[in-house]
Design a protein around this nucleic acid. Structure first.
Lengths: 237, 237
DNA sequence: CTGGTTTATTGCGTTTCCGCAAAGACGCTC
DNA sequence: GAGCGTCTTTGCGGAAACGCAATAAACCAG
């Protein structure tokens, strides 16, 4: 399940760490220490990294693959908070209190994660202030993201919300292809609904209408944006 | 407008700092340095602390009074992100990048703020890791708050959302009175709407219905919760 | 290629909530 | 206490989006 750094499968080189949101610009001297305290964990697509309510024992940084962070209500309704790609942090609660994870994280592709125990990452932050500063920076950025989403959910109609969601995904996981920009995450209509605050039916109807106008072309769990500018004008006007 | 610590109006004592979310548990030795770097600023009710888009030059900690943080769209639609009371931080962006404030903050009551320049607070964080740890903790907590609100906005119907909003305000600014728990912030129907993702009309109708059932009693910009348990069951069921 | 599973589409009725409009209540100033 | 501005209530019509249900399409395994 987990193995110590130095395993045959992945060499955790300093360049990788320096490219992550948490260890960016950390003094070279600290990198070895960070690396020594790390473990690795592989998760297959669909597998759970941690559940909502689990005690926050480890912090993860995505090395390869992609994760999804969700929030679930008592009665099972779910929303997607965010997707996490290489270099991003999962399990931020581990950085602060000795609390529990407020949401779940699962892998949507096979992924390799680098992890630290709560005690280890706290010690590293206390010793190397630049790590703590990075944590402040990325938490601030995520807080801001959520503020924007709240504003959208509160003030915009569904079509615009879906447009914003798709554009955000393009930004985050867009891959240029012949037909346009493809979102490189398998995305069901349900998934889009859970990101836009609507139902899969409404998402389906909206995408169908867009497909009619050649703005997007989509398949099963796949969306390709052909006319990003038109989508932007739907989102902004 | 601003004046250095040591002015006659407010003595910034160490006990106050130790009770704030940012300077909790900071070593006593650091308090003097924190204090020396601080300024004070008084704002009258209704006055702007900073605007959305202003460059993030200062960080504020509320000493007395209450502030409101908002997000506004290009076309002037507004949502209320949060109210800020004594001990809480306004202007978190100042902690990280050299960016701009992503939202506005105004005073809803006369308030006294303690402030630090961006450079000063960054230096303090770098030197005293416990400040940085506190920043990580409170940003994590706010990020979590926003996640919960997004889940509510995405999955719940208006009445439940309004109930949640009112209960949160009770938690944050409730004051026990003869008639029940009064929310000690002047709150218009419009304000409640901007916190719940709905319109003032719907808020008005909902409060009227609740008043009918003696769950709340309200006046102009005032809400008193008589039966918090019933409100909780509306929010949770 | 065939049967089963998952995912997507679409029609239709229904609910929820918005948004206009007009009237009413409250509180402040002079 | 008269007048004015702000805030609140409420009726009514209508738009937006939900949610059921049934069908269709895509994918997978054997």
């Amino acid at each position: 399940m987990r193995r110590k750094t130095g395993g045959m499968d992945f060499h955790l080189n300093p360049e990788f760490l320096q490219g992550t949101e948490l260890f960016r610009d950390v003094p070279a001297a600290a990198l070895h220490e960070i690396q020594a305290a790390s473990s690795q964990r592989r998760v297959a697509a669909g597998q759970v990294v941690f559940r909502q309510g689990d005690s926050a024992a480890a912090l993860y940084v995505v090395a390869t693959g992609r994760l999804r962070a969700t929030q679930t209500t008592a009665d099972g309704q779910q929303v997607i908070i965010r997707y996490l790609g290489p270099g991003e942090v999962a399990g931020y609660t581990t950085l602060s209190g000795g609390g529990v994870h407020p949401g779940a994280v699962i892998a949507v592709e096979d992924a390799l994660l680098i992890s630290w125990t709560s005690a280890a990452i706290k010690r590293l932050m206390a010793e190397h202030s630049s790590i703590a500063m990075n944590a402040v920076a990325f938490l601030g950025a995520r807080y801001h993201e959520m503020q924007v989403r709240i504003r959208e959910l509160s003030t915009e109609k569904v079509e615009r919300r879906i447009a914003h969601t798709v554009l955000r995904l393009v930004e985050q996981a867009g891959r240029r292809t012949a037909r346009g920009i493809e979102i490189a995450i398998p995305l069901s209509r349900q998934d889009l609904a859970e990101m836009s605050g609507t139902t899969l039916h409404t998402v389906s109807r909206t995408l169908s209408a867009w497909e009619e106008q050649k703005i997007v072309s989509c398949g099963r769990r796949r969306v390709v944006v052909a006319k990003a500018d038109v989508l932007t004008s739907i989102a902004e006007v």
